[in-house]
């Protein structure tokens, strides 16, 4: 049985861009007096009629130029943004990794941040306690786990954040370009771990500009350009089309 873990159809998402954005009452009054400084709202479509399917245990890539709507699509899947039209069905728990260590507080220790961060993803205390040792071991932070993370190096910080995210055992992992951070060894470790998760049944939706990796790792690739889906399917073909577009 191959039921889709993520199923999106006819997804439309618009943003309002505000020129001379009114953020205060003073600006609101000025706007009444002077029309040139009045807020102008312009809405544009960041995603138009996008569909997407991800099966259980699949790694699916999303590629496309800057500003084409990749992160927006990911945030719609995560439930952070509400699309204007269309349906997003996700079967299971989602762990968005849009940034590493979201919500880390510098004054708190690694351990305290671990609990806070995992709770942000909706885990309860027993669940967190169960994965705590694995997180610390994988992040190689046994010595430093009770130190405030303001004293961590960037690498330690990243390792902790990543380690939490990959131990949440979500059905769906959303990854937005976080492979770009960290040194070669860290990237290797990330990839290794993601493949491991994938083989244990986690579906991964991966946004990346690293075309070589996308081509090699993904089962399926979506190419998005100018808010539209240009191609969906074979990774090699998708990357080839994208390269061609870039060249022209």
């Amino acid at each position: 049985m191959s039921q889709n873990v993520i199923e999106i159809s006819g997804l439309w998402k618009s943003f309002v861009v505000r020129h001379n954005r009114t953020e205060s009452l003073k600006q609101l009054f000025i706007g009444w007096l002077d029309w040139r400084r009045r807020e102008r709202r312009q809405s544009f479509w960041a995603l138009t009629d996008v569909g997407l399917q991800v099966e259980r245990g699949q790694m699916v890539g999303i590629i496309g130029p800057n500003g084409s709507g990749k992160s927006t699509l990911l945030r719609c899947v995560a439930g952070i943004l509400k699309p204007e039209r269309g349906e997003v069905i996700v079967r299971g728990r989602v762990a968005p990794m849009i940034e590493i260590g979201v919500g880390f507080h510098p004054e708190l220790t690694g351990e305290e941040n671990l609990y806070l961060n995992a709770a942000l993803y909706g885990l309860d205390r027993p669940q967190i306690e169960a994965i705590r040792p694995a997180i610390i071991e994988y992040a190689e932070l046994e010595e430093f786990i009770d130190v405030p993370i303001k004293n961590y190096s960037t690498g330690m910080y990243t390792r902790l954040g990543f380690s939490i995210a990959v131990h949440l055992q979500p059905e769906v992992l959303l990854v937005d370009e976080i492979l770009a951070v960290g040194d070669e060894a860290f990237q290797q470790k990330c990839l290794q771990r993601m493949m491991q998760l994938k083989s244990s049944g986690t579906s991964i939706l991966l946004v990346s500009h690293d075309l070589a990796k996308v081509e090699k790792l993904c089962d399926k690739v979506y190419l998005i350009a100018h808010s539209r889906l240009e191609f969906a399917g074979d990774p090699v073909k998708a990357v080839a089309i994208y390269r061609e577009k870039l060249a022209s």
């Binding site: 004054e107 709770a119 309860d124």
Partner: peptide, 17 residues
Amino acid sequence: LRYRELLRSLIAKDLKV
């Protein structure tokens, strides 16, 4: 209700900080 641990952690964070 599923997020009560988050509520607890956020309050604990504020108190600790």
